[in-house]
Structures are given as C-alpha cells and as structure tokens.
Amino acid sequence: MLAGGLVTSNNAGLSVPDWPTTQGSLWKIPPMIGGVKYEHGHRMIAEFLGLLTIVVAIWTWFVDKRRWMRVLTCGAVLGVIFQGVLGGLTVLKLLPPAISTAHAVVGQTMFCVLAAIAVFTGKSWLQEPIERIVPQESRPLIRHLWTLLGFLYLQLILGAAFRHVWTKLGPVGAERWPAKKIIHMFLYPHILNALIVAGLIIYVGMWVLTRYRKMPQLRRPAHLLTILLVLQLMLGFAAYITRVVYGVNELQPTFGLVATTVSHIGIGALILAFTIILLIQVYRHSAGADRVTTA
C-alpha cells in the first residue's frame, strides 16, 4: 500500500508501460532507477504479497478446521488477484481515475481482510471471551461502528479520487481540469467528511474506553484509533499544504509532498483496519455471555 502511494505521489504509474510483463519480461528485473523503481518495486511487493496470501490459504486449508476461515483465506487470494488485475488495467488503460481509485480502495480492503485473518488466527481469538457485552449495549455500538466504516470508505474513495484525478487531469497531469475544480469536487468533501469521521471515532473511542476498558481486545483498537486519528488529521493538513498550497507549480514531487501523502495513506489504512478489528471484537464479545459486563 505504501509502495502504491509512492507510485502515485511520484507520478510513476506509467513508467513501465506493459503489464503483466515489465519491459517485455515476466521475470527480469529492470534497472531500478527513476520512476521504474517505484512502479516495478510496487509490482514485486504485490507479487510477494500474493505468494504469501496463497501460502496462508493453503496452510489454513490443511491446518484450520473452521470452514469459514478456509473460505475467507481463499477469498483473500481471489481478492489479491482481483487487485492485481485492477493494477494492470490501471497501467494498460493509462490511469483512468475510476479504475485507479478502485485499485486504491480494494488495496486497503485487502489489507483489512488480511488484518482480520491475523485476528481470527490469534491466540486470544481461539479462547472463549471471559467478559461479554450485554446486547442492549452492543447493538448501538455495532451500529455506530458500521456507520463509521461507511464514512471511512467514503473518505477513502474521496481521497483516492482526489489524488488520481489530480495526477491524471490536474496540474501535474494533462491540465484539462483546473486545480480549483478538483479541489471543490473531491478535496473539500474529503475535508468535510474528515470532520464527520473524526467525530465518530472520538464518540466510539470514548464509548469503548469508558465502558469496556477492562476488555483489552476492545480497549486496544479503540485506544489506537484515537491516537491514529490525531496523527491522521495532522498528516492530512500537511499533505494539503505540500500539494495544494505549495505543490501546484512544482515540476517534480518534493520530499515533503511524497512523505506526507504516503504517510496519510498508511495511517488511513490503519484506521480502517482498526475500525474493522474493533467491529469484529465487539461482535465476538456481544453474544452468548457467560458473564455480563457493562462497565
């Protein structure tokens, strides 16, 4: 994901025009210089990740007795393949913003699926929860978390669309769309939605941290979400300054622009993943209680 962020931020997505080959070869590594080091580096990491996902799926198939886990890991393999195809289409179709944005969104979704697999195979998951949440409390919490997830996805789509339209049609691209139009269409809604997301994270975070602080599976992701939120808002502001305020007339991407944008993407993915982990843990702790806890 970070490698993908480096590709877009360095406008290097088309430095290797062919796919699935790279400069005509499936296995030769081209000279890793200029934009090629970002684009081919991203492809190599993606291939390795795909290989690891296949290993996880095979391993799960033989070791894990839970049928749904087998289905989930096989689904992860299909998801990674789909993500690869989206990446290929992005290259072959010369970065259409819709496909490039879908590539960014599916990439983060796959990251969340793999994070969920890690949770499902963790030691604490395999033990029965000691404490549980009463259904009257878990239901609204689950509802809030689904709402947060919806706004997070909207945030992700708007952010990715802003970067890809900016690169393809905006000031660093074909200059067919003025910067102002792209900012009004994607960046301002992204900023507005950030406020909604921030409000929801603070609300859900406080809810969990005040009521279920004795449940580490809930407390930890909630705690991390609130910390990551602060970091993400600062990075978002820095990314805005480096790209929109100072970066419009830059002829090559500055270190500041690349660093803030890529970090913003990475922290955004972590927020999405921890929201999903928190949601999973709330489901896990909300049914068939042996002992009920409310605070």
């Binding site: 259409p96 913003p97 819709a98 496909i99 944005t101 709402t147 919806g150 909207l154 789509i157 708007l158 669309a161 339209v165 393809k168 049609l169 769309w177 269409m185 994607f186």
Partner: peptide, 21 residues
C-alpha cells in the same frame, strides 16, 4: 442515512466515470 450514502456513492462513481471518458 441509507439515502445519504447512496446519493454520495452515486455522485462519486458518476464523477469518476465522467473523468474516465
């Protein structure tokens, strides 16, 4: 709430498809 999601999602998809003409 569903209506807001759907409208926003349709808007974003529409805009992106428009950009990819």
């Amino acid at each position: 709430m569903k209506f807001i999601y759907l409208s926003f999602a349709s808007l974003v998809v529409g805009l992106l498809l428009g950009c990819s003409k």
